[in-house]
């Protein structure tokens, strides 16, 4: 009896609140221990120099030296940073457009559709990170031009278009764009799934009504399909940006990781990843702001 008076009877509402808290508490703990705490540590690390010893690690405060080192001393960071971000600005819209297009195709009825779907989602299964690393570090296979060769060979194209300086840069740009295609297709698996799921959730009665009214397929695509897909673009833009940025197989991530165990050391590597994180937040913010203008959620 005493215990009951000490613990007042909770209303159903606060009981449920407590229950919800109990369900989500593991994440709160995990976030604090494995993300927030290391996150704070990483700020501290980026401002200090780290030395390891058998019984722990010590840090000495060095101010902004690591950031300075990352930007101005490290020989490759700036170049890799700009190149990777530039590549992403091309890749992200391309991935979105491709996955939307592929989803509309896969949503149509044609012979072999099941097989086509199986193949299109194959990259989701076969995206082993170690392969990318092997292809990049594998000088022998590159020399032989086999395992990592693009669809079109640049030497062949140079022969076709002539090897003058004027055509050279044009050909190289063209080749670069063409050789991005596999990469874009490989990165679109999840986005195709999301678009496809959304396409299948559109009630067929809408199309039937449009058909009765005499709308062509082209018209019903732009008047029915596209507007209903716009919120999905939002989901996929956010997913694509986060995925391309945090994918350990992109060049900048590899570079940052490799500099942690070499060159400048931990502090510089953390400083580099802070520049990277800020760039991610900036691009994500701009993209969300731009797209959310066009999204009208149906209430």
């Amino acid at each position: 009896m005493k215990a009951r008076r000490l613990l007042p009877r909770l209303s159903l509402h606060s009981q449920r609140a407590l229950m919800g808290f109990a369900f989500t508490i593991p994440f709160a703990v995990g976030f604090a221990l494995f993300l927030l705490y290391p996150f704070v540590q990483s700020v501290m690390l980026s401002l200090s120099e780290l030395s390891l010893s058998p019984d722990g690690f010590t840090t000495t405060y060095v101010g902004l030296r690591n950031y300075h080192h990352a930007l101005f001393v490290d020989p490759q960071f700036r170049r890799v940073f700009v190149e990777t971000l530039g590549g992403m600005l091309i890749d992200i819209p391309a991935i979105l457009m491709f996955s939307f297009f592929a989803a509309t195709i896969l949503n149509q009825k044609f012979r072999g559709r099941l097989l086509a779907r199986v193949v299109f989602f194959l990259p989701v299964i076969l995206g082993a990170e170690v392969f990318v690393q092997i292809d990049q570090t594998h000088y022998m296979s590159q020399a032989l031009g086999m395992a990592s060769k693009g669809i079109v060979d640049i030497e062949h194209m140079k022969v076709i278009f002539g090897n003058t300086t004027a055509t050279k840069s044009a050909v190289e740009f063209l080749m670069d764009s063409i050789n991005r295609i596999p990469q874009i297709i490989q990165a679109s698996g999840i986005q195709i799934l999301v678009f496809l799921a959304a396409l299948q959730s559109i009630p067929p009665s809408l199309y039937e009504a449009a058909d009765v009214e005499g709308a062509t397929g082209w018209e019903s695509f732009w008047k029915i399909t596209f507007p209903l897909m716009v919120p999905m673009f939002m989901v996929n833009i956010v997913y694509t940006i986060i995925d391309t940025f945090t994918s350990p197989s992109n060049r900048l991530m590899m570079y940052i990781k490799s500099s942690a165990w070499a060159r400048g050391g931990y502090g510089v590597s953390v400083a580099m990843s802070w520049f990277y994180f800020l760039a991610l937040l900036l691009i994500l913010g701009v993209a969300v702001a731009l797209v959310s203008r066009g999204v009208h959620y149906e209430s």
């Binding site: 609140a17 808290f21 709160a28 290391p38 986060i242 945090t246 991530m253 931990y266 990843s273």
Partner: peptide, 25 residues
């Protein structure tokens, strides 16, 4: 419950933090 929206925001944030930021710590 009070703060559940905030905590869910942290779930999304946990996706966004590049692993390399917290890798060393």
């Amino acid at each position: 419950y009070p703060g559940s929206q905030l905590l869910f925001g942290l779930v999304i944030l946990s996706l966004m933090i590049p692993p390399s930021v917290v890798m060393v710590p």
